[in-house]
Simulated scan of single mutants.
Amino acid sequence: MNHHIWDAYSKSYLNIQKNPASFQLSLMNMLRFNEAEEILDAGCAGGQLHQYILQQRKNTCKLTACDFSLQMVKVAATRMLKFLNNPLSGEIMEISPLEIENVDLNCPLLEQNNYKIFQGDVQSLTQLNNNQFDIYISNMVIHLVENKNQAIQEAFRVLKPGGKIGIVIPVASGNLLMATMTKCFMQCGLIQNMPFKPTDIETREEMISFIKKYGFTDILCWNQTIPFDLYDIDNNYIFPQFKEILEKAPQEQVDQFYAFFKEEVQNRLNQNLPFTVEGLCLIAKKPL
């Protein structure tokens, strides 16, 4: 999936990202951000939790973030500048397209607060040094990259000896929201089967085996399930891989999809149940 798709999706993705952010909160608590000198958020999207990280870290700790999409980077930087200018005023999500477009990624205020963000590919982080970070965190990213092996090798490279990695990937079989969308796409004849499988890794054993290959030790891995607050049917909740299909489909089939999906959502609400998303969470160390 190319960066143009994610650029176009950057603003509405914040509505989805706030839910999987719960995975990242668990990781951050266990990674002990308050003890780190340098933290990397690899694949940060709209920087949903950067203000939280800044509040948890030491004042001298540097937070570096990157994302494949330049537009995502701009959204994250704009939100962070709003937060830094006045942490107690206004809703941080209320940022205009003009603010995003004109944001200065090298603004002195970001540097003064030990915050740096850039467009970068987790498969090749040439902008970063060997043995640079105490913590590498990547939430719902590794499954999206073309070369997962290279991405983890880069994570190992940029971590200091004794540094910790914290990653989350979705479990396809435990993603009720994605499964429901797929079912509705199939019902209206837009697809024959699942168009996008997040990853071949579905179990703790597979996840642990995967990370061990690159030299990581002291591994903790667990399944975690979170609720997804889907109440409104709009494009904000249509994932990019599905949105591409809808954009090319006849209007009649698009309308059918939304009708089917609305019915599924209503059925869930009638049971007083949210949709749920499952993730595999992992923490490990780079040996000393």
Rank of each mutant, 00 (worst) to 15 (best):
E38Q: 15
L246N: 04
L190S: 00
L128M: 12
K148N: 14
A259I: 03
Q150M: 14
K248T: 05
A21R: 01
I165D: 05
V171Q: 09
I226D: 03
L88V: 05
Q17Y: 01
I169M: 08
F257H: 00
E278N: 08
Y258D: 00
I152H: 06
P274W: 05
A45Y: 01
F133G: 08
G189P: 10
L49M: 03
F260K: 04
Y52K: 13
C61V: 03
G162Y: 07
L81K: 06
M178F: 10
H3A: 14
K197R: 13
A8L: 12
N102S: 14
V103T: 13
F118W: 05
F260M: 02
C66T: 03
P274H: 08
T60W: 01
K285P: 03
Y136N: 03
N86D: 10
I137L: 14
I201G: 01
Q112S: 15
N129M: 09
L109Y: 08
V122P: 07
A76K: 04
Q192L: 11
P274A: 14
F275L: 05
G90D: 02
F210N: 06
L54N: 11
A155S: 14
F239M: 10
I135A: 06
T203E: 07
E202P: 07
E278G: 12
W6P: 02
V73S: 09
C281D: 02
L105D: 04
K212T: 10
R32W: 05
K74C: 11
I53K: 00
F228D: 02
K11S: 08
I219M: 09
P161W: 12
I245M: 06
N86E: 01
T60F: 02
K285G: 04
E244C: 06
N223L: 14
Q51A: 11
L27P: 06
C221P: 09
V145H: 00
A42E: 05
M207E: 10
L49Q: 05
K18V: 10
S173N: 13
N19V: 04
L269E: 12
L159M: 12
L144Q: 11
H3D: 12
G47L: 03
M93P: 00
K262E: 04
N106D: 12
